[in-house]
Design a protein around this nucleic acid. Structure first.
Lengths: 162, 162
DNA sequence: AGCAGAATGATTGTGCACAACTGAATTGTG
DNA sequence: CACAATTCAGTTGTGCACAATCATTCTGCT
C-alpha cells in the first residue's frame, strides 16, 4: 500500500532533519561551554579558514555549500566579532578575500577541544562515524544530482542534464 | 595528532549538515513540482495531521521536535493558505487545537506522490533507508541526551542529571 | 578599443529555528 | 478559598538558508 511508503518516508526524511538539529544543538552547547563566541555555521567557516588560510567568499561558499546570501552577513558578524578581516582582492576587484585576524587564529587552540567533546556526545566509534559519513556523503551526492537535474532521471535522456 | 581528529570531525558534522540541506532542497523541488504550496517543514506538519487528525500545538511540537516559536508562525501560514484551522480548546483554554480543513485533507491525495519521488531521488533501497534511519535515530537520541544532560557524562554522578 | 556577456559579492524578501520572555489558564498546596 | 508554581501558546530578537535581483568588475569577441 502507498500508506506504507508514506510512513517510511516520513521516518527517513524526518530522521535526517532531526539528526541535523540535534547536531546543531550539541554544537551550540559545546561552543557555549567553551565560550568561543561562535555559532555552529560560524565555527564551520572558521574551520575552513584555519585549515586553508585566506580564501575568497566564493571559495568559502564552495567549501561549505553556501551562497553569498548566507555568507555575507555571517562574515560581517565574524568581522564585527574581530575574528576575520575582509578586503577586496587587488588582483580582481570583484573578489573579497577573507582572512583570520590574530584573535581569530588564536581561537583555533581552544577550538581543538570541540571535536573531542562532540565525539563524546555522539557516542560513535571511529568506525561508526566513518560508516555514517560515507552513507551521508553518498546520499547527499545523489540528492544533489536529482536537484541539479531538475527532477527524476527520465531514463537516459541527453547526458548534459539541465 | 589532534589535527587528525579535527579533520574527521569536520567531515562528520559537515556531512550531516550537508545531507540535511540536500534533503531540504530535494523536498523543495518535489513539492514545487507537485505544486502543493507547502514548504518542507509545512509538509512535515501536514503529515502529522494527516496521520493523527486534530492535535494541539504542544503535541505537534513533540512529534516534530519543534517549539512554539517555530510552530506558531508556521501554523499561521498554513491557516492563511487554507490548509488548517486553529481554535482554542474548550476543555483547556491554554491549548490550541489544529485541525485540517477539507482543502487541507484533500491535499493528502496529491501528497501521496511525494514519498515516491523522494525515494527515487535518494537512490536508496528500502534496506539502505532503514539502516540509515536506524543509525540516525540512535545518533539523535545520544546527542539529545548529551544536550539535555548539559554536558559530558561526568562518570556516573547522581543519576538525576540536570 | 569597444561592447556583450559572464563572474562575484551584496542586498532584499521569505521562511525555518531557537532562546528568552510575556500573558493567560490550570493545577497544586496550605 | 487564596496564592504560588506550572503549563501552554504567542511574541520578540538573533541567526541561518535560499531565491531573486542588482551593481561592479572582468573577459571574450569583433
Amino acid at each position: 500500500m502507498g500508506t506504507d511508503h508514506l510512513v517510511l518516508d516520513r521516518q527517513l526524511c524526518f530522521a535526517v532533519h532531526a539528526a541535523s538539529r540535534a547536531f546543531d544543538a550539541a554544537y551550540r552547547q559545546v561552543l557555549r561551554d567553551l565560550d568561543l563566541g561562535l555559532t555552529y555555521p560560524q565555527y564551520l567557516a572558521m574551520m575552513v579558514l584555519w585549515e586553508r588560510g585566506p580564501v575568497t567568499v566564493k571559495e568559502l561558499g564552495l567549501a561549505l555549500r553556501l551562497d553569498s546570501g548566507t555568507l555575507s552577513p555571517l562574515l560581517k558578524r565574524l568581522e564585527a566579532a574581530g575574528h576575520v578581516r575582509r578586503e577586496r582582492s587587488a588582483a580582481d576587484e570583484r573578489s573579497v578575500i577573507v582572512r583570520l585576524t590574530p584573535a581569530g587564529a588564536a581561537l583555533r587552540e581552544r577550538a581543538q577541544q570541540v571535536p573531542l567533546a562532540i565525539g563524546r556526545a555522539t557516542g560513535l566509534t571511529r568506525d561508526g562515524a566513518m560508516a555514517l559519513h560515507g552513507m551521508l556523503g553518498e546520499l547527499t551526492a545523489t540528492l544533489d544530482a536529482y536537484v541539479s537535474r531538475g527532477g527524476p532521471a527520465e531514463d537516459q535522456a541527453g547526458g548534459t542534464g539541465r
